[in-house]
Amino acid sequence: SIVTKIISIVQERQNMDDGAPVKTRDIADAAGLSIYQVRLYLEQLHDVGVLEKVNAGKGVPGLWRLL
């Protein structure tokens, strides 16, 4: 499923980069989806406690990390 793919992308990127959070844009590119589509999935995963959003604010790139 797309959700499983997104989780594995975040996991893979974090492992490659010493646990650093992953940008929404990088996840979207790797999943082959638009940034808006991916954001909806990321928000859902956040709501159920799978991911945390590391930063927030208007015009700030979203950074995500697995919990």
Rank of each mutant, 00 (worst) to 15 (best):
D18Q: 12
V22D: 01
R39G: 11
G59V: 04
L63Q: 10
E12R: 09
G62H: 15
V60I: 10
D29C: 09
E43R: 06
I7D: 00
I6N: 04
N15I: 12
D47V: 12
L51I: 09
V48Y: 11
V10G: 00
V48Q: 14
N55C: 12
E43K: 09
A56K: 07
D29M: 13
S8F: 13
D17V: 12
V3F: 14
T4F: 12
L66W: 08
E43C: 09
A28R: 02
L40V: 13
V60A: 13
T24F: 02
L63R: 11
S34M: 04
L33F: 04
K5I: 08
D29S: 11
V48H: 11
G32Y: 04
N15C: 13
R39M: 15
A28I: 02
V38F: 01
G62I: 15
V10D: 00
A30E: 07
Q14I: 04
V10A: 01
T24S: 04
L42T: 05
V3K: 12
A31Y: 02
W64Q: 00
G62K: 10
E43I: 06
D29V: 12
M16G: 08
P61Y: 11
G49W: 03
H46P: 02
L66A: 05
S8I: 09
Q14E: 05
W64V: 01
I6R: 00
S8C: 14
L66I: 11
E12H: 12
K58P: 13
V38G: 02
L67Q: 10
G57C: 07
S8H: 10
D26W: 06
E52Y: 05
R13C: 08
S8K: 15
Q37W: 09
G59P: 05
V48K: 13
V60F: 11
Y41T: 04
K23W: 05
Y41G: 02
I9C: 06
K53F: 06
L42M: 03
V3L: 14
E43T: 06
V48A: 15
V54D: 02
L45T: 01
E12S: 09
V38P: 00
N55G: 10
V22E: 01
H46C: 13
I6W: 04
E52S: 06
A30I: 06
P21K: 04
L33C: 04
K53G: 03
V10L: 15
N15R: 12
R65G: 05
A30W: 04
N55L: 06
P21F: 08
A20W: 05
L40G: 09
G62P: 15
L63N: 05
S34F: 12
V3P: 03
I9H: 03
I7F: 05
D47G: 09
G62D: 14
V3W: 15
L40P: 11
D17M: 15
K5Q: 09
P61C: 12
K58F: 09
P21M: 05
Q11E: 08
R39K: 12
G19D: 07
G19P: 05
R39T: 15
L40Q: 11
Y41F: 09
N55K: 09
D18F: 12
Q14D: 03
K23V: 04
I27L: 03
A31T: 08
G49S: 03
E12I: 09
